[in-house]
């Protein structure tokens, strides 16, 4: 039993070290970028690091960088994406196709190229980690 406790303790130390390393890394690689007059934190791939810094104007400015002009439909979808990610759910193209806002084909047309990556970038949430 005592050895079990020891193990736990070791794990805890490793975890704390990991978190600290991550924090340090974040500080090193985190950059600031100004969108629509607002300075927001972005990572090395241009994804915003703090979703709460996002405003409609910031979204529109990121979209312009990506060559997309946002419509009401885009904003409806951005809202959906932000809510989903905020709830900790995995984002998939299939899920967006079933959102009732757009179907998969329309989604591809609205964010040409890599839709899931572009939509999340414009929505100010992290890059999706989904394979489907």
């Amino acid at each position: 039993m005592s050895s079990f406790n020891n193990d736990n303790h070791d794990n805890l130390i490793t975890m704390t070290t990991l978190i600290n390393t991550n924090q340090i890394l974040n500080i090193i690689i985190m950059a600031e970028k100004t969108y629509a007059g607002v300075s927001v934190g972005v990572n090395e791939e241009g994804y915003m690091t703090d979703a709460s810094q996002w405003t409609k104007e910031v979204g529109a400015a990121i979209a312009t960088d990506e060559g997309i002009e946002l419509t009401d439909k885009h904003y409806e979808l951005i809202e959906f994406v932000r809510t989903k990610v905020g709830n900790g759910e995995t984002l998939t193209i299939r899920g967006i196709g079933k959102s009732g806002i757009v179907n998969a084909k329309e989604f591809y047309a609205m964010f040409p190229g890599a839709p899931l990556k572009k939509a999340t970038k414009i929505s100010g949430v992290p890059k999706p980690s989904s394979c489907i």
Binding site: I93, G95, G97, A104, Y108, P115, I132
Partner: peptide, 17 residues
């Protein structure tokens, strides 16, 4: 895991071109 059945998967692929 939200992996679609084969027919729906094909539709997803063609939806994206």
């Amino acid at each position: 895991l939200d992996i679609p059945p084969v027919d729906e998967f094909l539709e997803l692929i063609t939806a994206g071109g």
